[in-house]
Design a protein around this nucleic acid. Structure first.
Length: 340
DNA sequence: AAGATTTGACCGAG
DNA sequence: CTCGGTCAAATCTT
């Protein structure tokens, strides 16, 4: 069986799995958005499979191996209004309040990859590191990031990045809160052909330093990175389906190339593609290889393929990142074009 | 000088 | 008390 066949099977299998997920979400406790999202993914998956049958699927063979797991923990969606988080964080002048006390529900998305690309890739948002902690029982420290525009625009989004204990090539990214800032204009500008390459390189260099000041200077990069991504504390179901991006960061003295999900702040009312910069089928196509452990959730939906690909040589992955895949024009992978 | 990261201190929860 | 998350001064980078 060749790769294209495997990808095709992957698509179809994921379509099936997604349909199963949708069935789970038919009960009234699941949100309409969740169902619509799943439906969208199913359609995307089959759409992709069909297009592969028509076109030979040659565009997919260079995609990195990713698994994406969407975890939902409705039990954590407790009492209180969605404003509670905002008001909590708005009290920054007061004594720090733990998020643990906040009403919350969480959405988790986990991604695994066996492949990585060289250099700096960002997740489409500007993050500023504000802390790092050694976590008990974890072999690697956890990095804490907040949106660069926290003060300027009051954006409350934060993320945590931690290297996986089990698999050093896997990193877990936890997003909290949603972006209320306007960073997409910058990204849109980046994607625009009218922007000079110098400017784009400058931007990427800034981002690289942002997230990995030491390693980026050394020019050392960790290949074969994997990732886990999850979001939580989203105060609005509109935000449960973030945009998929890649980024690099530095935790535990290493460079990470991460897939990430940033809560989309683009209105879902605009268009499907805007709401989900990379279609679910695209993401599912990443899932060519590994299982993801999701021990902490009783609601585990693994969107993955039963097939597996061997790790691709760096060059191939890089080809992927350079745009062999027909990502939509507003997809933030556009940045990758300027990475080399 | 401005803006970023580093890192120990601090806080609340358990 | 310990632990995770954040603050903020010191330091670094541009």
């Amino acid at each position: 069986m060749d790769r294209e066949q495997m990808v095709l099977i992957n698509e179809l299998t994921q379509g099936k799995e997604l349909a199963k997920q949708l069935r789970k979400h038919l009960n009234p406790s699941s949100s309409k958005e969740t169902r619509e999202f799943l439906l969208q993914k199913i359609l995307g998956s089959y759409e992709k499979a069909l297009s592969m049958l028509n076109c030979g699927a040659s565009s997919m063979v260079h995609e990195p191996n990713l698994n994406i797991t969407i975890l939902e923990t409705p039990s954590s969606f407790a009492n209180g209004s969605p404003r509670s988080e905002d008001s909590d964080l708005d009290c920054k002048d007061h004594v720090f309040k733990k998020r643990k006390t906040m009403p919350r529900w969480s959405e988790q998305v986990k991604v695994c990859s066996r492949t990585g690309v060289e250099g700096s890739l960002n997740d489409g948002y500007c993050w500023r590191k504000y802390g790092q902690k050694d976590i008990l029982g974890a072999n690697h420290p956890r990095g804490y990031f907040r949106c660069t525009h926290r003060h300027a625009q009051g954006c409350l989004a934060t993320k945590q990045v931690q290297k996986s204990d089990e698999d050093p090539s896997i990193f877990e990214v936890t997003y909290r809160g949603r972006h209320t800032c306007s960073q997409n204009s910058q990204l849109a500008a980046m994607a625009s052909p009218s922007v000079s390459k110098e400017k784009k390189n400058h931007y990427l260099k800034q981002r690289e330093q942002e997230e990995n000041p030491k390693q980026s200077q050394e020019g050392m990069f960790n290949f074969g990175a994997g990732f886990k991504v999850k979001t939580e504390d989203l105060d609005n179901r509109e935000d449960i389906f973030p945009s998929f991006n890649f980024s690099e960061t530095s935790i535990d003295g290493e460079n990470y190339f991460m897939g990430s999900f940033s809560p989309a702040f683009i209105s879902p009312a605009t268009s499907e593609s805007n709401y989900f910069p990379v279609s679910p089928s695209r993401m599912n196509n990443f899932g060519l290889g590994h299982s993801v452990q999701t021990p902490e959730s009783d609601f585990t939906d693994i969107i993955s393929a039963p097939t597996s690909l061997t790790n691709s040589p760096i060059g191939e992955d890089f080809d992927f990142s350079l745009g062999k895949v027909d990502f939509q024009s507003n997809f933030q992978f556009d940045n990758l074009e300027f990475f080399s």
